[in-house]
Simulated assay, not measured.
Amino acid sequence: MPGAVVARDERVTLRTFEREDIPFLQRAHANPEIRYQMGKPLKNRAELESWTDDATDRFVVCLDDEAASPGDADDAHVTPIGVVTVEDADWRRPELTYWLVPERHGDGYGTEAVSLAIDYTFRTYAHPAVGACAYESNDASRGLLESLGFVEEGCTRMGFFADGGYVDTVQYGLLRSEWDAANE
């Protein structure tokens, strides 16, 4: 069950990731439509528990109804639909990662969740930029980043093993000044 509200807009809420969210994470990672696209091996519960103990800011992307409490999410009023993370923020440029359950793709929730994560990152950390990465062939993810103002900064050839083969990854960056100017 997701925890307290970190950020919210009209449709999407970012809530703290709690140990009770591990079954949601495990079910999602077991879905080939998500796991193959992420290039991640299937993890058991113990592996996911250790993964959630790292220093990453990890949030559950939720759809809350009007009865949802800001401090504590009731399963009847909060529907988790994905995860967004802010990685490496304590020692270098933060890197955003994100995914949604397949049945929520194409509805704009990903763009809203990543936008909230960008706002959170720039409010919380003094870094001048954030980064993100997408598989070269993932037009939806690349389009999401570009729609938010990210600029392509480079390509890592054969950067990840995903869905049976190596794929190129495209690195993106977004300067704080660019984000501020676009959101004045």
Results as ranks from 00 to 15, higher is better:
82 G>I: 06
95 E>A: 14
52 T>W: 13
111 T>R: 15
29 H>V: 02
73 A>V: 07
55 A>P: 02
36 Y>N: 15
104 R>G: 01
38 M>L: 15
65 D>K: 03
52 T>I: 10
112 E>G: 04
38 M>A: 13
51 W>E: 09
121 T>H: 11
101 V>Q: 15
84 V>D: 01
47 E>D: 09
29 H>I: 11
73 A>C: 11
106 G>R: 14
45 R>L: 12
89 A>E: 02
81 I>S: 05
76 A>N: 02
72 D>Q: 12
88 D>Y: 14
92 R>Q: 15
55 A>H: 13
61 V>E: 01
108 G>T: 02
63 L>Y: 07
58 R>P: 02
41 P>R: 14
46 A>P: 00
28 A>W: 08
32 P>L: 04
84 V>E: 07
48 L>R: 11
61 V>N: 00
84 V>T: 13
56 T>F: 02
33 E>Q: 15
30 A>C: 02
120 Y>A: 00
99 W>A: 07
48 L>D: 08
92 R>S: 13
30 A>K: 07
73 A>Q: 03
98 Y>G: 01
83 V>G: 09
46 A>E: 15
29 H>N: 15
73 A>M: 06
61 V>S: 05
83 V>E: 11
94 P>G: 05
117 A>Y: 08
62 C>Q: 04
64 D>H: 04
57 D>H: 14
97 T>P: 00
49 E>Y: 01
